[in-house]
Structure formats: C-alpha cells, structure tokens
Nucleic acid binder design. Sequence first.
DNA 1: AGGTTATTTAACCGATGAGCTAAATAAATG
DNA 2: CATTTATTTAGCTCATCGGTTAAATAACCT
Lengths: 134, 134
Amino acid sequence: MPLDPLSSTFAALADPTRRAILARLALGETSVMELAEPFDMSLPAISKHLKVLEHAGLISRGREAQWRPCRIAPASFKEVDGWLGNFRRFWDESFNRLDGLLEEMKAEEAAKAPPRSNRKVRVKKEKQRGRTRG
Amino acid sequence: MPLDPLSSTFAALADPTRRAILARLALGETSVMELAEPFDMSLPAISKHLKVLEHAGLISRGREAQWRPCRIAPASFKEVDGWLGNFRRFWDESFNRLDGLLEEMKAEEAAKAPPRSNRKVRVKKEKQRGRTRG
DNA sequence: AGGTTATTTAACCGATGAGCTAAATAAATG
DNA sequence: CATTTATTTAGCTCATCGGTTAAATAACCT
C-alpha cells in the first residue's frame, strides 16, 4: 500500500544510484540517456529509478520531443530537511541551546565583518549536551 | 552485502515506526519496553527496528541491568544533513543566491531588534533556515 | 536454585525492491 | 512509410524487509 510521503522519500534516497542521479541533476536538467551513461546498468533499471524518484517528489520531468528531461524538485527535499530539523539540536552546536542565541549573534557579527565566503561558521565551543529529560 | 553508510541510514529512516521511535528518543533516553508501548506490534519487531537504527548509526545503546536504554546518536543525522546540504539551494531561498546575502542581513537585523527569550528565533516569515551555514 | 522481567535470536512467511531481457510505445527523420 | 532514437512496460528472478510465534539469554529478586 502507498507509503506516507516521507517514507517514500527516504526510501528513494536509500539507494546510491538514485543519489548519484540526484547529484547529477543538481548540475542541471538532463535526459534519461545522459543520466544512465555513468552507470553499468540497463536503461529500464534507470527508468525505474527515475520513476521512484519522481514518485518520491524528488524530481519532476518535462517533455521535449522524445526526451523526458528530469530536474530536481524542491518540495520533498524541503520536507526531509524539515523533519531532520527536529533533531538538529543533537548535532548542531549553534542550534537551540541556552547560549545558542548569543553564539549565533556572535557568529552573525563575525560573518558581517569579513564578507568572506566562509561557510561553516562554527563557533568552536563544545558545551554540554542537553539531556532535556522528559 | 553491506550497504554504504548513507544508504543504510536513509533506509532506516524510510519506516514510520522507526521515525516514531526516533521522535520518542528525541525526548530522552529510554528502554525498549517503553519504546514499544505505543505500537501495536510484537517486541521482537521493535527489537529488529532498534537493531536497524543502531546499525544505521542513528541510535546507540547502553546497558543498565536487564535494560538496554536507547538514545539518539548524532553522527548519522549529521551526515544526512550534510548530504542534504548539497541540494539546499534548490529550496532554501536564503541560501546561496545573489540577493541571499541581502535577505539574510535583513533577517538578522530583524532578529536583533526584539531580544525576546524565545528559542526558535523565527523571523515570522518562513525565511531564514540556514543562517549559521553560510 | 527458581521465578520474574527485559530483550534478543531463530525460523518462518508474504510483500516489495532492484536487477535483467524482450518487447512496446513515442516522436523525429530519411 | 520505414527507420532510428529515446524511453517505458511486461514478465521474470533473487534478495531483503517487516511482521509473526516460540524459544533462548540476561540480569534481577526472593
């Protein structure tokens, strides 16, 4: 029976071929043939993978003559990210801690001074892991 | 054959029972019995789910007498988040766009004005989701 | 030791998933 | 119209998965 959307999406992501396809699509829309090219796998297999990705809402497909170009579809990615957000405090130090606000403000301050393109604005302190028992 | 770690993790997340278990564990460490309680499912089934989650690196387990308390393990969550980050630009407006910097600066400005003590520093629009992440 | 509680292992079953080959469909082109 | 190119459908196999019940461990408590 039909899985809930989040389960379909995670299931779709649980395959390295499909993740590689998504990585390729992150570079831009392309055809099934071109998507299939790097893999030692039949075309029907790729076709199935694409159907899984589409059903999971991770890609969408157009029609141009005999090609069905594929592209990333944002919605399901966003859903996954949203779900993951419920757990972010477990690994992201700059998230949702007592002094988190402070640290973030500091980080933002720091980010404003040098307009460097430094991603990963870690604040480097390692505070206590909140147990939040309850 | 052993799946690569990311595949195991996504596969583990592709089941609503397991996600519910993780949601429960987000509230704090607990026993198998207590984890099993909400589900209309045998204990061995839960035990299997826990094994899958553990093998996926999403939980870790201790030993206290006859109990094996489970808790969230951050590493795999972080890996998933990292992988997802490669696609963030597809749905996160405040990420990696020309005016992204501008928007973020606006959001930060707005966040600075009211020094409310509310965690979840929402700026009211569904904007700003990846601030400390460059 | 014997019993109770917590959890796992073993053995099984039906459904699903990923791969294949062969054949079908769709649209451009000679 | 026949052919080539792009993609999908059909039908098959084999492995894995999620669930079951019955039995085995493990640690505590008389």
